[in-house]
Design a binder for these strands. Structure first.
Length: 277
DNA sequence: AGGGAAGCCTGCGTGC
DNA sequence: TGCACGCAGGCTTCCC
């Protein structure tokens, strides 16, 4: 499931191939996956650059008349971009963008088995036209995410579990189930604890742990637990470093106690009953 | 108001 | 072998 490190890895993997390329045709193969909120444009669209905000991938576009647009993608569970150099169409391809780069023609396919993901098109390069993006919390790897801002988030959501607060995109952008569980393990905090009961010292540990797992995740090109691959079809390797996610019942890497599985904030949650208090 | 839960989706693993 | 069922989970919407 693509979280911040996976979306960042997709962005990096597609940047060289797509920067400066032009979209010469947009084919909707399944209705409703691409939501066009623009007031119109004239093809071709030049891809100026790829950016990321939380779990959203952003394409800054300029149409043939110089008008700025933005294409926004959210993969949810199983969405992915796939570069198709031949005319083959793999199953669950919902949007096909015909691309020309340096005289070469290929397709950028949006493929999504469960069809939870969406693409949006807006006028201007301002991703905040998208209401949910406008409400996102700070980027956890930016200066805006500090020990202080995390403390403020935990205080504001004092009644929710600490895991629910980490998953709340309005508090921190880009954390999902895998990296939330991993960060809580590293910080020694039980996921079901109330946010308001996390001490200042634990908050500092959690802040560091979140930064660490996200940076490690990016460094390992993401977590390929089920079927995640980057924009060029390559799996990541962070799954080799997971301490709790997907390890229910297995011994804790630190104390050998069998890991527990519970349900927190509607999500399957794994933790070590001895290391996490 | 704010938090919990249902609903959206399909593939896959399990049990009968 | 085949079928029914449960589970995976990010986000929106609904409900308490």
């Amino acid at each position: 499931m693509p979280e911040l490190p996976e979306v960042e890895t997709v962005r990096r993997s597609l940047t060289d191939t797509l920067s400066g390329a032009t979209i010469v045709a947009i084919e909707e193969r399944f209705p409703g996956v691409l939501i066009d909120e623009s007031e119109g444009y004239t093809l071709p669209l030049t891809i100026e650059r790829l950016r990321r905000r939380g779990k959203y991938l952003l394409f800054d576009l300029i149409d043939v008349e110089g008008k700025a647009l933005i294409l926004i993608a959210h993969f949810r569970m199983t969405g992915k971009f796939y570069i198709e150099h031949h005319n083959h169409v793999q199953p669950h391809t919902h949007v096909r963008l015909k691309i020309i780069k340096d005289g070469n023609t290929f397709h950028l396919d949006y493929v999504d088995v469960r069809r939870f993901g969406r693409l949006w098109l807006y006028d201007s390069h301002d991703e905040n036209r998208h209401k949910t993006i406008a409400g996102l919390g700070p980027e956890p790897l930016s200066e805006a995410f500090s020990e202080e801002s995390l403390r403020f988030s935990l205080k504001r959501r004092h009644g929710s579990t600490v895991k629910a607060t980490l998953l709340n995109q309005e508090e921190i952008a880009g954390i999902g189930n895998i990296y939330a569980d991993e960060a809580l393990f590293r910080a020694g905090i039980r996921p079901q604890r109330r946010s308001g009961r996390v001490t200042k010292k634990e908050t500092a540990k959690l802040h560091l742990a979140l930064r660490d797992v996200l940076e490690l995740g990016i460094g390992h090109r993401g977590t390929s637990f089920r079927d995640y691959v980057d924009g060029l079809g390559r799996p990541g390797s962070f799954q080799q470093l997971l301490n709790v996610y997907g390890r229910s019942g297995e011994p804790c890497h630190v104390c050998q106690t069998p890991l527990k599985t519970i349900r927190v904030a509607g999500r399957t949650t794994r933790y070590c009953p001895r290391c996490q208090r």
